[in-house]
Every structure is written in C-alpha cells, then in structure tokens.
Amino acid sequence: MKKASKNILPYLFAFIILFFLIAAIFAPLIAPFDPVKQDLMHRLKAPGTVTDAGVHILGTDELGRDLLSRIIYGTRISLLVAFLSVIVSTVTGTWLGMLAGYYKGWVAVLIMRIVDIVLSIPPILLAILTVAVVGPGLGNLVFVLGFTRWPRYARVAYAQTLTVADKPYVQAAQFTSVSTPLIFRRHIIPNIAAPLIVVMTLEFGLMILFEASLSFLGLGVQPPTPSWGAILSTGRNYLSIAWWITSFPGFCLFFLVLSVNMIGDFLRDYLDPHSIRR
C-alpha cells in the first residue's frame, strides 16, 4: 500500500508539469483569445462571462483581456525564463566548478572564494541589485538569474570533480596524453552529472518562483507581456471586486512549483541513494 502510493505520486507531479509544458508550447492553439487584446467594454468580468467574442472561462482583467489566455501565455514566460536561466547557470557554474576541481591550486582558491562571496548575498537582494543595474526585461532577467545562481552548481561540480579527478582512469587518461577537453567530456562530465541534474531540477522550481517574484515587484518581464507574477501584481489592486485575477495565476504558480520540487526530491532519492538514509 505504502509502496504503491509512493510510486504513483511522481507520475502525478510529472503529469502536472507536462500539462503546463503543453500549455506553454501550444499556447497560440489553446488560448481562446489574444492575450494582449484589450476590450474596455468588458473589464473585470467574472469567470464564465459570455461576450460577443466568446466565453471568458476565467473572466477578464482590468483592461478586459481574457485571463485564461493571459495565464496560458504566462506559462510560456515562466517556463522559458526558468529553462534558460537554469541552462545559463548550469553551464557557467559547472564549468567553473570543474576547472576548480580539476586544476586545484590557485584556480580553485580564486573560483571557490568568488562562489562563497556570491552565496553570502541573499539571492533575492543580489537579483534586485543586478536588475537595478541592467534594467528589467526578459533577456536581462535570464542574465540576472543565471548570474545569481551559478555558484550552487559550481559548488556541486567542484566537490564531485575533486573525487573523480583522482580516480585511476582519469590519471591513466592524463598519462596517455588524452586531450584535456576529451577528459572532461568523456570521463568527468558523465560522472558528475547525476547530482547536478538534481540541483537543476530543484533550481528550476526556484527560478519559476524568482521570475514570478521579480515580475511581481515590477522588475521582471514588462507589460503588456503576460507573466504570472505581473498578473498577480496588477490584480492586487482589484482584490475586492475581482478575486479571480490573483487567484488563478497563483494556483498555477503554486502547483507548478510544488510539482517541480516534488520531482526534484524524487530524483534526489532515486539518483543519490545516500540521501534516503538521512
């Protein structure tokens, strides 16, 4: 009984993620309305309102835009920003961590000191500071998140590379003058990948949350581009007359982040048998 329920849950969460993924990819086909088209005649209509243009299943916002369509397109922004920033921080962090772990000495001291320093600034403050400098917007957001989060990967990659680089097969490769890039590609990366994948998953959830938070603060994706955080932020002004504007994007954000985190936890148990015992 216990075993069965343990096995079903990951599929359920994976299904939720898949659901959002499909919504994001096929947004133009699924969304019933244009997400940025305003209809000032039908502002703040409750969910289920029928207008000449069709049914607004989740209602309309303060400019008469269809909420469901905005949420569907918002999924795109959420997943795109999270995906790109995870890629940026993974690539940067993994390479720096691997170089530190492989070459050791002053390279390691330099890189890992910088890692310590960046990690000692609260992430949301570092993100705010960088946004203040580079300005808001989608591309900048990816840069800011990547820049803020790479040290986590560097730490993991560093620790893993240290153990792998001492293994006889790596030393054998070095002695037989296999080129260094090839050693990285063939021997190091495959052996340090598993814990990094776990970090990537957990960070993916965090990045979705960060994007929403920064957009909520007005520092992320700029209007009229629909983003869950931005929708929540404008909906805050209409809480007493239009509960739906804040409720639905919040639900989506919550379920998506929860599912990603649960999958991350599951992967950790699955890929890293040591953590189960704890």
């Binding site: 949350l209 929403a212 938070s213 929540l232 932020s233 809480l239 804040t246 919550f254 929860l258």
Partner: peptide, 28 residues
Amino acid sequence: LIGQSMPTFWSGILLIMLFSIRWGVLPS
C-alpha cells in the same frame, strides 16, 4: 510543506482577501 511551497506574495494576497476584504478583521 504546502505552507512552505506557497509563494509569499500569493499567500499574502489570499490572506488579505480573507481577513481584510471578506471578514474585515485585519488591515490589508
């Protein structure tokens, strides 16, 4: 755990809706 997974800005908004707007017991 669910309480921890809720984004603070959303849980904050839900609390405002419930306690400030619906019941009017606490300032928003």
